[in-house]
Structures are given as structure tokens and as C-alpha cells.
Design a protein around this nucleic acid. Structure first.
Lengths: 118, 118
DNA sequence: CAGTATCCAATGTGATACTG
DNA sequence: CAGTATCACATTGGATACTG
């Protein structure tokens, strides 16, 4: 049992299970990547990602906000305006995340080929 | 729509969806981390991770093998011996992965606190 | 505009019995 | 030892109607 799995006995303080598995869903990384360039409104994010449902966008944003990756700012206007932006934590996450995305991009073809040959 | 989501229209050549989402499950990163130190047998990996079922270990290993992250070597012995090891692709993945794990480790407490306060 | 509520399908996970 | 088969349950995801 290694250092990362060891503590999982108690209340899963294992960062892989508690942090990475959480953002390892279908949309979190895409949302963070979309917000990395600029602050956006709810529907703007949806249009950027293009094929995410309002439902999943809503849930994903709420979880990212809960985990402290993004902020949600409501403006008292009509029609309502809500802006989402990265926090410092979210912005610092971008560094390892972009390294991962670059790796995935560079090895994408190789992995697809490996799957085909299997 | 950004460069990462743009191509997703066709057959999801988006590396986030096709590569990262796949290893974003509960066990893949833990298995890769476990194999990063040395080649191991099936049950050895299970003992290291400690609370993974044979079922999920089997499935996770198969997917990682299919994607080309690990190799599976069967020795013609009795009792049977099967060893799992990282491929070059798997080993290269370790670099961005470890950066991510370190980030998760460093920000684990902050994120948990953010969840509690929500 | 920015969501929530509801319902349903697909996938992921767990426990355990069984096999070569 | 190294798995697979089966069943059950949890979580995730998708579509869409509805609301302030």
C-alpha cells in the first residue's frame, strides 16, 4: 500500500480519490478550459462547449464552485446575468491541467490506434 | 467553441473526452501510480491499492492495456503468473500525471475546506 | 437568461460465486 | 493465482418541460 492509497482507509483523504476523481468526469476539465481564457456567462459556456446540456452544465458549475475552482457572480439585472470565473485555486490548477491536456493531445492518435488494434 | 471542443462534432477526437475522461475513473490513476514504482502481479496491485475489488482491478487493467498504457505478460507456470508493467506511453504519462497528483495533494485541504463551507 | 425538476438510459462500482 | 460471470446498486448523463 503506497502513500496515496494508505490513508484511504479512514475517510479517503487520498487526493486522487477526493480531488482528481471528482474533476475526472465528462465536463469539468472542458468547463475549466473554457473559463481559462475569460470570464463567461452560463449560456456562453454552454455555447463554447456546444453539446453540453443545461442540466450537466448546471451541475458541473455547482460542483466546481463548491470545490472552490470557480466563482459565481449574480448581477441584479433584468434579464438576469450570472458570470463564472476561475478562482486563484482554479487558475493554479490550470498549470498541471494544461500539461495533461497537452499530453493527451500529443498521444491521442497513438491511443486510438492502440484501441483499434486490441 | 474552442479548439478542444470544436472537433468533438465528428467522432470525439477531442483528447479530453477521448483520453482524459477515460482515465478519470476511480481506479486508473491509482493503478498507474502503483505500477510507476515497479512491475507487479495482479494480486500484488490489488494488495497495494488495498480496497479495489478483483472485478474493478480486472476491468481497469484491461482498459489500460487496451489504451496502451500497460503491458500484460503471462508466464506459463503453475500457478499462473501474470505481470503488469508500464509501456513507454504509460511512463510518459506519469510526468503530467505526477504534476497533477502533486497539485491535488497540495490543494487537498483547501478544497475539502471549501466543500465544508459551501 | 439562468437555471431547476423530472424521468429515463447508460455507465461505473461492489460483492461474491465460480473456473482453468 | 488470475481472473470471469452474475446480480444489484450508485452515479452519471441526456432530453425536455417548467420557473423566476
Amino acid at each position: 500500500m503506497n502513500i496515496l492509497t494508505q490513508q484511504a482507509q479512514f475517510d479517503h483523504p487520498c487526493p486522487i480519490r477526493n480531488v482528481l476523481h471528482r474533476i475526472g468526469d465528462q465536463w469539468s476539465l472542458l468547463v475549466l478550459e473554457t473559463l481559462s481564457r475569460k470570464t463567461l456567462r452560463f449560456n456562453e459556456i454552454g455555447r463554447e462547449i456546444n453539446d453540453i446540456s443545461k442540466q450537466m452544465l448546471s451541475r458541473t458549475l455547482k460542483r466546481l464552485e463548491q470545490d472552490g475552482f470557480i466563482t459565481r457572480t449574480v448581477f441584479a439585472e433584468v434579464p438576469p446575468r450570472v458570470e463564472y470565473a476561475l478562482t486563484d485555486v482554479g487558475r493554479s490548477f490550470l498549470v498541471p491541467m494544461q500539461a495533461l491536456v497537452q499530453w493527451a493531445d500529443a498521444n491521442h492518435a497513438t491511443i486510438c490506434e492502440s484501441r483499434r488494434q486490441y
